[in-house]
Design a protein around this nucleic acid. Structure first.
Length: 733
DNA sequence: ATTTTCGAGATTTTT
DNA sequence: TCTCGAAAAT
């Protein structure tokens, strides 16, 4: 028996080596259209594909096909994903197709590619040769400093406004002429308006901090290519194939950059879904996808409309929602999947009721043997997660927050990374974050003192502190110790790997004891988790991973690869969920002013509203088997009374089951009746639902038999089979 | 006089 | 979670 098995294994291995098995998995699982997309290796190919139609699969398989069947080196393929999470997912699939040892480091976001390009040649631009990538928090901090100098107060709206302005200015080539000059020449540029003055100051400051923001990463590369033909030449010659995922989210600028990169060898393969463009606010323009065939001729366009993900019921809801968008190319998804339960719209009187419903639904699911990890709770804005987390903590439901305010935005991780940045750059941003962490009795007064000195002598806060540490103001504080620790760590940084440096730093700076004393074990766990991920990236990098390289990558790749191994409910924003799929999806907080967001409503522009609807569409189409949309009354942002999102009514009554309790005022206003919709032949209630039967009283759905269209419901008197068609059932809460 | 602590209120989305 | 302001602590 054992011998037989091992012989079989040998044959398998042999087939694998010959490439047969690879070829099978590579092409056999594809439908006709996907196959066409994958195997068209020359020229321009555009795939317009609906949600769940396997567009990323087509892209991944084409990548593998190019490498395996056409023998192209991965270094010659520019494979661009939209997020790091997507890149990681794709890497996994490529490794599955091409073998674990296959080098997938060439699958990345455009921003990561740009960082690589800049790392090699930024020295040509009169910019500090080492740079850090500024994230939004850094940007905000810099802008706040600038606003303080100009004596203007800054709120979130102003911040967003200025970010848009900065993007606008940074799109002008004159800006690059300005920023790329040697530091000392910066003063000779004069601002004509206040707005310009603020932006110039912002640029000066970011340069002082060795920072490049996300706009710069793209702009610098474009500028570098423009000024230095040899650099452009080098990269152009390298790129023979370009594959771009989520092409509907690309900006015109990014498109031009990619076009420049592939000017010599023009083989494009782009996939996208116009209905899933949810990044217009960030400059993305789906016209790039729509007009691709006119700009890049001759272009082969392949449509993928069969959905392999969701039940017909979920797809119906999604279709009826998205068809309310006027500015749209009609494209109806279909599926051959088996019928499932109707999506459910649960309306509740307040937030407690809403979170209780979610908790109950999840508990019912797991009591029946289901896993937590098959469930995702999605929401429009991060603040919604707070209610959900609180509810889950109370009910002891394990959960993981993905993206956004996830692992890398935790306070302790930011602190620790700031320490590392402090060692590498000594910049003010890091200094301000950690100088009093742990408490060193360095507060406002001392910082004001340092600020004056640093401005007067054009040095950093840290240098100023070193220079004036013996002044009376610093008497009795931990400043001297701090300097000593940092100086010693700076020396260590040259020899020690990042992981060891970090461990030393945690002890020497007193940060770890400080966290330990605060009694928060989660924070220590998070730090160990970071440490673990550093060790992994060190191993992957092969040679000695320089601290600066690590820091550049870490601010781009903020995706700690959370494994599916842990059985946790996944919690994330809709934006983060894009490209993912889950058995059960709960879309929480589906209220006006949250989804659509209050900003989109204030803009009063149809475009903004349509983007919000697409966002809702993305959320709905993440679900494979069961979809819940929940919302509640009560007091919302700025004291408004919360009302259900218009989008839950965009989904036709025949496509969604409306449940929950509703107050009389709202009932009058909205005229939707809870529990009014019944579609015969389809299970309206999920397993675990509490229901009321006209004759048998209250009970719980134990089983659903799709074949005989029957529920098995446990009542006081025992288990009874009840037909889907029976109209005497109603939901109980 | 200065720093620390504690409670209250507010929050779009991300590379 | 983050920030702000007032009160408490050094």
């Amino acid at each position: 028996m054992l011998q037989k098995l091992s012989k079989k294994c040998m044959i398998e291995t042999h087939r694998m080596l010959k490439g047969n098995l690879m070829k099978d998995t590579l092409l056999d699982n594809l439908n006709e259209k996907q196959l066409e997309a994958v195997t068209t290796t020359e020229g321009y190919v555009r795939v317009i594909a609906g949600a769940g139609s396997g567009k990323t699969k087509a892209l991944t398989h084409r990548y593998a096909y190019l490498v395996r069947e056409a023998g192209i080196s991965p270094a010659n393929i520019l494979c661009i994903t939209f997020t790091n999470k997507a890149a990681n997912e794709m890497k996994k699939r490529i490794k599955y197709l091409l073998g674990e040892e296959f080098d997938t480091s060439f699958v990345a976001t455009l921003h990561s590619y740009c960082t690589r390009i800049l790392r090699e040649d930024i020295g040509k631009l009169f910019y500090p040769e080492s740079f850090i990538v500024l994230d939004t928090a850094d940007q905000k901090r810099i802008l706040e400093e600038v606003y303080e100098e100009f004596n203007i107060s800054m709120d979130t709206a102003t911040f967003q406004f200025m970010i848009d302005k900065i993007r606008y200015y940074k799109n002008l080539i004159t800006y690059m002429d300005f920023i790329a000059v040697p530091k000392e020449d910066i003063g000779k540029y004069e601002a004509k308006t206040l707005e310009e003055a603020i932006i110039l100051r912002y640029i000066q400051k970011q340069k002082k901090y060795f920072g490049l923001d996300f706009f710069d990463l793209i702009n610098f590369v474009i500028y570098l290519f423009r000024k230095h033909g040899d650099v452009l030449d080098k990269w152009q010659k390298r790129m023979h194939y370009v594959l771009v995922d989520e092409f509907q989210d690309i900006t015109v600028k990014e498109f031009k950059l990619i076009r420049q990169l592939t000017e010599i060898n023009k083989n494009w393969f782009v996939v996208g879904d116009p209905d899933q463009n949810i990044y217009e606010w960030r400059g993305s323009n789906m016209q790039v996808l729509l007009e691709f065939d006119q700009k890049m001729e001759p272009c082969k366009t392949i449509f993928l409309n069969e959905n392999y993900r969701s039940t017909p019921q979920i797809l119906n809801a999604a279709n009826s929602l998205i068809e309310k968008n006027k500015n749209r190319i009609k494209k109806d998804l279909y599926t051959k999947k088996e019928d499932g339960a109707l999506p459910e719209h649960f309306h509740s009187k307040d937030e407690n009721e809403e979170i209780n419903f979610i908790v109950k639904t999840i508990q019912a699911h797991t009591e029946k043997g289901g896993n937590y990890k098959d469930i995702a709770v999605l929401y429009r804005s991060n603040f919604v997660s707070r209610f959900i987390e609180q509810g889950f903590l109370k009910a002891n439901i394990p959960y993981l927050v993905y993206g956004g305010v996830g692992v890398y935005d935790r306070m302790e991780i930011k602190d620790v990374l700031s320490y590392l940045r402090m060692i590498a750059f000594g910049d003010d941003l890091s200094f301000l974050r950690i100088v009093n962490m742990p408490k060193r009795k360095i507060g406002k007064t001392k910082l004001v003192f340092l600020k004056q000195k640093s401005e007067a002598e054009n040095i950093s806060y840290y240098e100023a502190m070193k220079r004036y540490i013996h002044e009376p103001v610093f008497k009795g504080c931990g400043g001297a110790d701090f300097i000593q620790v940092i100086e010693r760590l700076k020396l260590d940084a040259e020899e020690l790997p990042v992981s060891e440096l970090l461990q030393k730093l945690l002890i020497d700076s007193g940060y770890e004891p400080y966290i330990r004393e605060s009694g928060d074990m989660d924070r220590l766990d998070n730090i160990s988790e970071l440490l673990r991920s550093i060790v992994i990236s060190e191993t992957e990098y092969g040679e000695f991973l320089p601290l600066i390289t690590f820091l550049q990558d870490v601010s781009l790749n903020r995706d700690l690869d959370i494994e599916d191994k842990q059985d946790c409910v996944k919690i994330m924003t809709i934006h983060t969920a894009k490209g993912l799929e889950f058995d059960t999806v709960v879309l929480a907080g589906a209220n006006e002013r949250t989804l659509p967001s209050i900003r989109a409503l204030e803009e009063r522009q149809e475009d903004a509203l349509e983007e919000e609807r697409r966002l809702c569409f993305v959320a709905v189409t993440r679900a494979k088997k069961k979809l819940y949309i929940t919302e509640s009354e009560g007091f919302g942002i700025k004291g408004y009374t919360k009302v259900p999102s218009r989008f839950v009514f965009d989904i036709g009554d025949e496509s969604i089951l409306r449940t929950g309790s509703i107050s009389d005022e709202l009932k009058e206003e909205y005229r939707f009746q809870v529990g009014a919709v019944r579609v015969p032949g389809v299970a309206n209630y999920a397993v675990g639902s509490q229901v009321k039967h006209k004759v048998f009283g209250e009970g719980m759905v134990e089983e659903i038999d799709e074949e005989t269209k029957t529920y098995m419901i446990r009542f006081m008197i025992g288990i009874k089979p009840i037909s889907f068609h029976y109209s005497g059932l109603s939901q109980v809460f």
